[in-house]
Design a protein around this nucleic acid. Structure first.
Lengths: 357, 357
DNA sequence: TGTACTATCCAAATCGTTTTGGATGGGAGA
DNA sequence: TCTCCCATCCAAAACGATTTGGATAGTACA
């Protein structure tokens, strides 16, 4: 019969079996079936076993929409990636999602993903997902100093956790990477090699990660009693092109800096390219380092000195914290500050500058 | 009043405004409000305007679950990435999702993402999302020769489109990249430089993309009347480590091949690493090329010759096709075969082998 | 004036669950 | 034999939207 329908009607699709079908088959009430499957103890254990068995062999799976409507919970968390789509390729991304995905599926949550550049489209996206009760909570990445998302969700009392701190962030659990101490370690490493004219290519200071890392840069210099020179700090945009452009300008100067720190790996890769085009040998004439620990840095030539952050693990934790928050399971502390790890590679290693600075 | 609740109750969260609230405020029926918002013409235009206006200023957004339950459509598409989580970092991924995300949000669909390694967990994931009516359709990536996903979804008559072909795939629209002609171009390029001993590092032939590219390798050789030597074809696993291991073995031979093609960029990057550790100058002693066109290849040293496929665009198209399929909008053809583009860079360019082969 | 039609509105059913507040019957204890 | 209680079950009311199948009143036309 199903077979006939299938043949007659191109649009045939098997109707999903509902709880009512199971109830009818067993001559039980819908209530009992529901409670049996939910494991309540007001149904006889013989009945319960029978219900579970037949539900299973009938292939019954509760329809998500109905359950969600009744329970007013979606068991879904949202992630809106703040970027513009077309040339978006952030190695950070896949690892982060993998971390979130593993944790959520372990706790039988789902993950709803969207991509929206900061601004109006982003606001619309958050409004929509909160007001339509599309998700139970959000994971925020790339937090900003004045972060609209944080104030909005806080005002609405909507659960969220974030990767990154923010001055608007007071009460919601989050994971921060101590970019300050990470970059400070890097600066120390460079100073240990004899560098004194160290440049920093950042990005919009609206991003907390930028300010954080810049702070580490300044702290590192200060500790070595090197006066901070604003001329050595340029602004990129977290992309390779940004790093390339800024480096072009830096090596055009005389004297040019002997070391460059990129605020992230992509920036540093752009810097390497620019330096090499300018005829400099990276790792010898000029030291270059990044921040992130991406695959691309491992394969660059020379291999890139960087500050590594465990993105997969961060994704896992930040979603675990969110689910705890949604389910009102206290226990996760407010801030988890991860200390990143310096990885020294060839792009800085043999770069002792001339002793006469 | 809301303010008081907010103070008294830590768990206070604003109740979303429902269509009933809007109806009550305007002293209209729920029906009329619904139909006004849906744009039916059986409501007076003055009423319609009023409804739209007040709904807007009350911040009314239809609750997704309720609408979905009634309409039996989710306006959501699913993507289950076939990989194991922990060390997953595929540059392909972020660009593909960006493509899908832009297209779906343009057509006001949502994207549900999960990660599950091929096998039991994957099957459970598909079962769950189909039976619970969690999504309206799926996008498949990394299709396999005998693909359980394809047979399952076909049997269930559940909409899907895929990136990649398969022998189990007969009726569903998909985008294929002509890896065969792509690799053939690459082989021609290498032969043009004088290479004759060209190795190929593949991966499980269960993946259609592997067989496809291998075919191109063989076709290229044949066209140049070079006999195919199975000893020159090794199996990697699409990762850098796989390429590294295989290359170690290749360059241990005597004579070693003068050129190596990696089935993807990561494989080729591993090959470069192994060759360099073995004391070979890539691009001179040994030519190496990949397939994908990822960022990492651009920054490798030497820069990697590769076959570029427009992943963002493919993501966009494959989701557009899926939505058309879901909404029964005919028009999209069954197969869209994209011809990838050879990008010649330094890793092969100056690699004319000694004329006496 | 009566009829037919149109424009505008609405009550109630429905989607598939979960939850509330009983109903029922059999056994134990007096 | 009569209560009372407990174990087991269930009817009906939600949840918030859409859709079906009218109802109502005003207008046009004879």
């Amino acid at each position: 019969m199903g077979e006939i329908l299938r043949i007659l009607n191109k649009d045939y699709r098997a109707l999903p079996v509902t709880i009512r079908d199971v109830a009818k088959k067993l001559d039980l009430s819908v209530t009992t079936v529901s409670r049996a499957l939910a494991g309540y103890d007001d149904v006889a254990s013989a009945t319960r076993d029978l219900v579970i068995e037949t539900a299973d062999e009938m292939g019954y799976v509760p329809q998500h929409a109905a359950r969600q409507l009744r329970r007013q919970r979606t068991e879904t968390i949202g992630l809106i990636f703040p970027t513009s789509g077309s040339r978006f390729s952030d190695p950070f991304f896949s690892e982060f999602i993998a971390g979130i995905g593993d944790e959520t599926s372990k706790r039988s949550y789902d993950l709803l993903v969207s991509v929206a550049p900061p601004g109006e489209a982003e606001e619309r996206a958050y409004h929509l997902w909160t007001n339509s009760r599309r998700v139970d909570g959000f994971i925020l990445v790339r937090t900003r100093v004045d972060d609209w998302r944080i104030s909005y969700l806080t005002k609405e009392n909507f659960p969220f956790t974030s990767f990154g701190r923010s001055k608007t962030l007071e009460t919601s659990p989050h994971i921060g990477v101590d970019g300050c101490s990470g970059v400070k370690d890097l600066v120390k490493h460079l100073i240990g090699l004899g560098h004194r004219r160290i440049a920093f290519i950042g990005a919009s200071e609206e991003l907390t990660l930028v300010g954080d890392r810049l702070e580490g840069y300044q702290a590192g210099l200060e500790e070595a009693h090197i006066t901070y020179d604003p001329d050595l700090v340029l602004e990129g945009d977290l992309t390779r092109a940004g790093g390339y452009e800024a480096t072009k300008r830096l090596i055009g100067r005389s004297p040019y800096p002997t070391a460059i720190i990129g605020v992230n790996d992509l920036t540093a890769l752009g810097a390497i390219r620019a330096a090499q085009e300018g005829g400099l040998i990276v790792g010898k004439d000029l030291a270059i380092a990044g921040f992130d620990g991406t695959v691309a840095g491992e394969h660059a030539h020379p291999t890139l000195t960087t500050v590594y952050q465990p993105v997969y693990e961060i994704g896992r934790q930040v979603s675990a914290m969110l689910i705890d928050l949604i389910e009102n399971q206290a226990g996760s502390e407010l801030e988890n500050l991860i200390r990143p790890r310096l990885i020294v590679r060839d792009s800085t290693l043999n770069s002792k500058p001339a002793p006469a600075d």
